[in-house]
Design a binder for these strands. Structure first.
Lengths: 107, 107
DNA sequence: TATATTTGCAACCGATTAGTTTCATATAAA
DNA sequence: TTTATATGAAACTAATCGGTTGCAAATATA
């Protein structure tokens, strides 16, 4: 079962979990309280997130604190980069057109 | 069947299609030639991409040219923004630490 | 007009998914 | 030690997914 970041963020609950623990580490129980599912379902999501290294654990007694592996999120950013170049170019082209129109109005 | 961008990019073939048509519009047949699947499978992917408005069509006779709706890709960028703030802060904090270490070494 | 090409859709199939219930293990508290 | 709490794993289920085959519609070409 090969996991990747793209598949991991496809599920809305997992995206919510990611956002939830982005700023503060949380235990599975606390995370589950924020959702309308069982603790076990959240546990499964956390396993998937751990498998693709989007999340790291830190044991503290019988509690396990989960927190976001922010570096892994950059992978998405990296993939988006190829398109960012395109939309910036498009914007520049639009900008050029607008400038031309402006100049024409002045004359 | 609610489609969203996150679910759309979860599939590797769809990601490849997106990259393929990002710079140049293509027909389903031409797109399918680039993959190891049937034309119908590609057609299904294109339907999903169309449903979540990641792709737009332009009919030309009996051919249909598909191209990327680059604006929609910004939605992903927008979602990533919340984490970008975090990783930039982390970087700045690291930078601060490094600067402090440097200063300490000087003294 | 008859034939070929381009495409989308429906029906089906095996695999995967997200969820539940049940159970086992480990740690903390009484 | 006994009981309560926190957690993960296994087994099961309904729904969805990605793929295939077969077919119909529309357009181009002979």
């Amino acid at each position: 079962m090969r996991r990747d970041v793209f598949q991991a963020i496809a599920d809305p609950t997992r995206r919510a979990i990611i956002t939830l623990i982005a700023l503060q580490a949380m235990t599975p129980n606390t995370i589950a309280e924020n959702f309308n599912t069982t603790r076990q379902a959240v546990s499964k999501h956390l396993r998937i997130l751990t498998e693709c290294e989007l999340v790291k654990q830190e044991q503290e007694g019988r509690e396990i604190y989960y927190s976001l592996e922010i570096e892994k999120m950059k992978e998405l950013d990296k993939w988006l980069n190829q398109f960012r170049k395109i939309w910036e170019t498009r914007f520049n082209q639009l900008d050029k057109v607008l400038t031309t129109i402006k100049k024409q109005k002045k004359c």
